[in-house]
Amino acid sequence: MNDGIVYWLQQILNALQLGSIYALIALGYTMVYGILTMINFAHGDVFMIGAFFCFLAATALGLPFVPTLLLTMLGTALLGVVIERLAYKPLRQAPRVSAVITALGIGLFLENFTLALAPYPKHIPPLLESVTWNLGGVSVSSLQVIIIFLSLGLMLVLDYVVHRTPVGMAMRAISWDKTFVPLMGIPADLIISVTFAIGAGLAGAAGTMYGLAYPVIDPYMGIMVGWKAFISAVVGGIGNIRGAMIGAFILGGVEIMVTAFFPSTYRDFVAFSLLLVLIVIRPYGILGQPRTQKV
């Protein structure tokens, strides 16, 4: 194959890998916003905890890949529910800014709690045998394939749950109206917990895959990745699940392409400027709908 084509195919593959991970985290932001209109700023740190759960499962318990992934998702899902019950539920009637500040506080707590226990960066052992295939000059690693397809799989499952099952219907109903939907016999607290569990579980999956792709983890890893995922969610239209996925792949693509064309110093600057322009053109994100204020 032509060298130029090989080069671009390689960069597209890099972008897909990065975008998949952003997408899994962005889903957590968008789901919580959709149901509570609250931005859960602790979500990036839940992702970090996921990577540390993966580290513990892989080293202390010595588990292989699939049980590690499932255990990590279960662990972060529980963490998400606990955070919601202890920190956000008591504030549900409080001004929204209180909940956002609480979320920031939870994030700082998670970072510093992990820092106190694990000040050194940790190395996640390779759970999967890494094979690199050479397809006409393009290097495709088994890890890349697994990350991209596992993420797409999880997203399809989520999309199905939200749009085709009773639980998903209840979620969408609560996001529509929190006052009257519970009067129709829908257990709002339970559904909100389920939403947090799914969002945090996906962050756990993202933490595991991130830990495999970039195996040096530290307590501050969630901050920047969390911000990028949040921006993905906003670009896609926060509150919209398919939008979050599209936003994440756009951000991943822009980041990789900027680095490919310009000095990498410009990456965050150009990426965020482009997103700013996008927000100016479409203030509600790509798939977001303007919400009219009900009086």
């Binding site: 390689q10 960069q11 890099n14 991130y210 792709a213 970039y214 501050y220 680095t259 490919a260 990498s264």
Partner: peptide, 11 residues
């Protein structure tokens, strides 16, 4: 603090 170097390494 960057973790992904794939674009640079591809270059």
């Amino acid at each position: 603090n960057d973790k992904d170097f794939s674009a640079q390494l591809t270059k």
